[in-house]
């Protein structure tokens, strides 16, 4: 099973996770820019974060045989914080970089005017930079948030196939299935979706435009949920080719629209644990045995 986890916050995960993900078949990931569990106090804090997404984290993933991409955006929650407003003006500098495969996560958190303004501006930026868009749907008032997100996407003039609406469930899947956008599902240990509910949705709606991710981050989450969904699909009678389509070919097709995927395989010689990024290695001063 080869897996592209299209939404995982590796900055918050350990090297053990990278090893377990590789063992489970994960060979590529996309890490969306999002919030860190506590508010940032300034725009500059975002820049350091973006720098790590295009630099250190990509380097770290490669040490474990995994290709790392990212999406860049001002997230909905912090779009409400006036201390972070300058980020919007600096985003173009990051959207231009190699390995940045979409604008995201954008969308709604509490459905405020500030969130909508940032969302609309970032849909424009996606058009200007010829990038797809990753849309986060809110935890609260999810149906209304999803509906309004689809309205803004339609009004933006972006083609629906350039947009992935994420964190869907049985309640919101119909809205998006009819829109032409890609459908993203985050599989969690105990909230949102689990792998068995996911399999039922795949059985009901088919595999077209379907994307499954772990959305693993700093909270209680599981970076192997993509692999576990693949296993549940097989147990429910889906073929290996079906699993490959959902867990590899679909995310590659979506993010491949950026023209910036870095999917050449990493050969073992390149997985050099002694290599350094900006003079620093993952070994904390140790040398491999």
């Amino acid at each position: 099973m080869r897996i592209f986890d299209p939404h995982i916050h590796m900055t918050s995960r350990t090297t053990d996770d990278y090893e377990a993900m590789y063992a489970a078949g994960v060979r590529a990931v996309t890490e969306p820019a999002f919030w860190l569990g506590q508010p940032r106090g300034s725009a500059a804090s975002f820049y350091d974060y973006f720098d790590s997404l295009v630099g250190w984290e990509r380097f770290r993933a490669e040490r474990f045989g995994i290709r790392h991409h990212c999406t860049i955006a001002l997230n909905p929650k912090e779009a409400n914080d006036p201390r972070c407003a300058d980020v919007l003006d600096v985003l173009p500098r990051y959207l231009a970089k190699d390995g940045v495969v979409a604008v995201g996560e954008v969308g709604f958190d509490s459905m405020t005017d500030a969130e909508e303004k940032a969302f609309v501006r970032q849909l424009e930026l996606a058009g200007e930079h010829d990038l797809p868009v990753l849309v986060h749907t809110p935890h609260r008032d999810k149906v209304e948030g999803t509906r309004r997100s689809l309205e803004l996407v339609a009004a933006s003039g972006l083609a629906p196939e350039r947009v992935l609406i994420d964190h869907l469930n049985e309640v919101t899947v119909d809205l998006v299935a009819d829109s032409g956008c890609w459908l993203g599902f985050s599989i969690y240990p105990d909230t949102k979706m689990d792998e068995h509910r996911m399999v039922r949705i795949l059985a009901d709606y088919g595999l077209d435009r379907m994307i499954v991710n772990s959305a693993a981050d700093w909270g209680r989450s599981d970076p192997l949920k993509t692999a576990k969904t693949g296993k549940a699909m097989r147990e429910a009678g889906f073929s290996e080719d079906d699993v490959d389509r959902v867990l590899w070919r679909n995310p590659v097709a979506f993010y491949g629209q950026s023209g910036r995927l870095l999917l050449d395989p990493i050969d073992d010689a390149a997985v050099d644990q002694t290599a350094t990024f900006a003079g620093n290695s993952v070994l904390r001063g140790q040398r491999p045995a």
Partner: peptide, 9 residues
Amino acid sequence: AVLFPAVAR
């Protein structure tokens, strides 16, 4: 601002 980062690509 946006052409410089994309030069290699």
